[in-house]
Each structure stands twice: as structure tokens, then as C-alpha cells.
Design a protein around this nucleic acid. Sequence first.
DNA 1: TTGTATGCGTTATCAA
DNA 2: TTGATAACGCATACAA
Lengths: 315, 315
Amino acid sequence: MTQIAKLTHVSQPTVSRVLSGSASVAPEIRERVLACAREHHYQPNALARGLQGGRTRLLALLVPDVSDSFSAVLARVAEEEARRRGCGVILLNTGRQGESGPACLETARRYRADGALAVSPGGSAPALPDGGLDLPVVAVNWRAAGLDSVYVDQREAGAMVACHLAERGYGRFLFVGGADEAKCAGFLQALAGRGLGGRTDCVPDGDGLQATLDTQFRRHSARTGLFAANDALALRVLSILRELGVPTPRRAGVVGFGDDCMGRYLSPRLSSVAQPVERMAQQAVERLLYRVEHPEGEGVLDLVLPAELTVRESA
Amino acid sequence: MTQIAKLTHVSQPTVSRVLSGSASVAPEIRERVLACAREHHYQPNALARGLQGGRTRLLALLVPDVSDSFSAVLARVAEEEARRRGCGVILLNTGRQGESGPACLETARRYRADGALAVSPGGSAPALPDGGLDLPVVAVNWRAAGLDSVYVDQREAGAMVACHLAERGYGRFLFVGGADEAKCAGFLQALAGRGLGGRTDCVPDGDGLQATLDTQFRRHSARTGLFAANDALALRVLSILRELGVPTPRRAGVVGFGDDCMGRYLSPRLSSVAQPVERMAQQAVERLLYRVEHPEGEGVLDLVLPAELTVRESA
DNA sequence: TTGTATGCGTTATCAA
DNA sequence: TTGATAACGCATACAA
């Protein structure tokens, strides 16, 4: 700006006023300054702006691992939306167990991010520090007490899957994944509600999965509906069932979660719970920026978006 | 720092010297300052640092779309590596055709990023501006003339696939994807080199894919080897072949690229070209930081990493 | 409508 | 070893 000021024979603040449009400037001066700025490819220094004003127009995106497909889509949409609104996004991987969470938050704070979008590892644990946050945070895909949250109700999603499988005539049910997940609870609860509680089981992900499923299918002859915690896991399950010679969906029905593994091109085409990731990302960014602009706003957003069960062939 | 200076009865520059370790300070003062800084959860202001020194310790990551699996993995590894070295990463989606490239670069420049990692849309087109860059850039996954580049040789990968398919006894060959891609050229060239040039064809991705493949398999009875430009496309191809009743891998062999769609859990398990994404990311970050620290360094890095063909059942 | 002066939080340069 | 002072690029308060 100082450069441009000299070249156009005005003061630096005047250049600032022209470029930021913060005050009215004589038309001829305005033109002269704008022309000069363009000619010299002037780009405002966001660091200086952030230092002077309180606002950096930088948003932190905290995800356990961007390379999982939910986070990846979230990252794309959130960044695009943020950029559309003049903000930059600083990406931070907190680790699958949230182990790098503290280090990530430190980084976000060093750059004085105006706010943060936070996806929780495991979909429910915090990964946020003990002390109160000193910047606005919107929780994405989990419900954080006292924090704005945008998420789908995984309990309900689990229940939805349970109903679907029950209606399809499966008489036994397996949840594949962490027993502590909300969708597992919803799944089991809904089945119990239908008097099917005794016919359910929960099998953990891991190397022993094939053996576990083998045992299950040897022991029980009933048609079994399986709900996998995510699509990648659902693929493994399908693969295992194939090896075990269990016909799908006749003997075993499989439903995935996330609808992100190209399910419609598999064989059998994978039924899966689809989440409105794009909408979550947009809503989260919108809310975050609202918070940034209205620091003393009250009330906590609790936005529950609906998941949809995409029924294909696998169940 | 000014705060801490007052509380510890020293000057602000002394606090700076303690916290940045840039000069020696009397042990007792050092301890006092450090204790005070910890107590008050002091975090250095990266904006001020960036403004004063020339370095922001901010890296820009330019990808066409973080939600494609290559970019997603790259983003994770690059960010982790960057953070390990004290740098933040600002994420920018340039668009599948690179349409937002200019806007992204502007953003990167506004934040005075020390350098950028750039993945090209389409794997070969630039997405970089006409004028010379004013910041160090490392091209990832494509070879950029005059720029440090880290990539796998897609021509060679294509040739590798061609050899594999030929050896497996396929007598006709199809590349599915953009005919302008390097791997397509390598694929066709290798086949021509084996005297099989007349038995090849290139079919574009798109809605007409099923019809095109149908025609191909009606017209030619030879066993056909197909090479898909990426794994997602390979899945579609497998799905189409299934509908067409073409047995895989007997009548048609399919090889994907990227090895990212859980190929080992499909049926048939997908053979695919695996890329060393992690190594590319690490090497790229390392080189970029080297450039940042040695601005006048000469020579251009041209690091070609080997791709590997993971042979499974589909071909 | 414009210019002068000041401050944002750091690091660097100089003296003491 | 320490402190006073300036500078980075910008926005704002105030005066003209």
C-alpha cells in the first residue's frame, strides 16, 4: 500500500480506504489507485489484516483423518464454502484416536483462526481440550454439549436399519463395529422394541472378524441381517460372506453406513445409510461464520439432519 | 509478550528471546518467563511472526478436489508431515478442471504462504497461472516443466499394465478414460511395441460407456483386457461387464489405477496400479521446505517414484 | 474527502 | 546479557 501510495501521490491510508472500500474516496483518486493496484498485482496481506483487526478470516478444520471419505467430502465442501465467503481453511488431522488434537488446536491458535469446525474421532468422543475453548467451534457429525452441533442422529439411523432388516424378514441381527457407537445402540434398541432383543449380537471389527462370522453362521441357521459401522467394513463383510459361502442377500443381508464406497457398482449392490455431508458442511460453515460475527450470540445450535437409507441389493 | 514482560519485570524483547530461543538469557529470568508463559497458556502469534520475518510457516495445498482419494491421502500425509515440521497447511480446492485455480492462488498469496504443493487437475494440465510463480511450488503427481516435481511415470504404469494383460493372454485391449492421459499413451505404445497396435481401442468415460462396451464385446470375440483410468471407473466397468454377462477375468480382464477403492474386497478382487502416495507427500513436503529455506537453490527436482501393479483376480 | 499519527505482536538492530 | 527503538502491512481515530 505504501508503494501504491507513493506511485499515485496519495497517503497510504487513502489507498487502504480505496482497496477495502471502508470510506468514500474521490472518484479520480479511486480509479488511479485501483489501476495502480491491478497493474502491480497487489494482494492484501492477510497477516497484517489479521494482526490489526481482530479477524483473520482463517477457519480451522479439525478432522481425525481427512483421508476417510466423510472427512474428505466435508473438507472439500467446507473449504469451497469458506472461500466463497472470503475465508481460508487450515487443515488439521487430529488422529484417529484424537491423539494429535492438542497439537492441532495449538496450531489453530497460533494462526489465530477465527473459529473451528470439529469432527470427532469415533463420531462421539470430544478430541477437544479440557478447558473451555477460546474460539467458536462448531461440532460436525456429533453432538457436543454446549457447542453448536450439526449432525445426523446415528441412533435413529441404527433404528432405521433395524426396521428395514426386520421388515425384510431377517430373524437374526448382527452389528459389526464398535459396541459403543450410537448407531449400534439405536440398532439394538429398535430390535428390542420389536421383541427381537434376544436375537441380536454385536461383533467387533478386527482380524478375528472372519472367524467370528463363521461361528455365528454355523451356530445359527436363521436369515441374518448385518449392519456394518461403515461402508469399508461392509465391503469386508461381504467379502467374508462370499468366502464362507453364505449367499447374500438370501441368507445374510448387509447394510453399510456412509454410502461412500461406490456401493452402487458392487455385486451385490450395497445398501447403505447415506448422510447429507454437503449440507452438513455448508450449515456448519454458515453457523461458524455467524458465530464469528456475533461473538455474544446466545443459544446453541442443535441441528439434526436426516440420514437416508439407500436400499439396493445387499439387503 | 508485553503482558508476560510486565508480570516478570523484564522487557518485551527479552521475553521474545526466551520464547524463541534466539539469544541467551540469564537462567533465572528464562525460568521466570517460561513459567509465566506456561501459566498463561501463551501461544505465539503466527501472524505477527509472519509479518515481521519473511516466513509464515504456512504451506498451501492446491488439489483439484480433496475428496478424491489420491488427494485425500496426500492431504493427510502432507499435513502431518508439515505440522511435524512446524508448518500449517491451508487447503485449497482448485476444481476438477482447475477452474478455481486462480482464486486459490490469490488466497494462498494473501496469507503469504511460504510455498505450495500443487496437484494438477487431470494429472497433467497445469492449473497454475501464466506468469511465473512468486513462491516455491512443488508439483505432485505430474511433471511440471521448470518446477520441482514428484510423481509416478504414468506412461510406464500404462506400459506395465499392457504387458501384464498381454502376458495373461488377452488378445484385444481397451483403455477406458481420457485418450489424452499419459497412462493411455503408455498403454497403447507398449501394445504397439509388441505388435498388438491394431487390436487396441480407447473408450471415453461417460454415460455412453455401457453401450460402447456392449458394442465392443458384440463386435469382437477375443478375450479383452481393459485398463481403467482410475479405480472408481474400474468398478463401473466391472459392474457393466456383469450386466452384459461378460465373465471376468475369463473373457474380460480389468485393471484399475490408484488401488484405492477397497479393491481387495471386491468380487472379483480388483487388480490395480498402486501409487506410493505417502512417499510422494513426504518427499514433496521435504523438498518444498528445502526450497523455502534455500530460495536461491538451483536445479530442479525430478523425482520419479515407481508404481506397482497389484495383481488380484480381475486380470 | 484527505492526511497524520498510532497500534496490532513479533523479531532485529543497535547501545548500554 | 539486557533494554530502547524501529519495522513488518494494514486499519482506525482524529484532525484538517
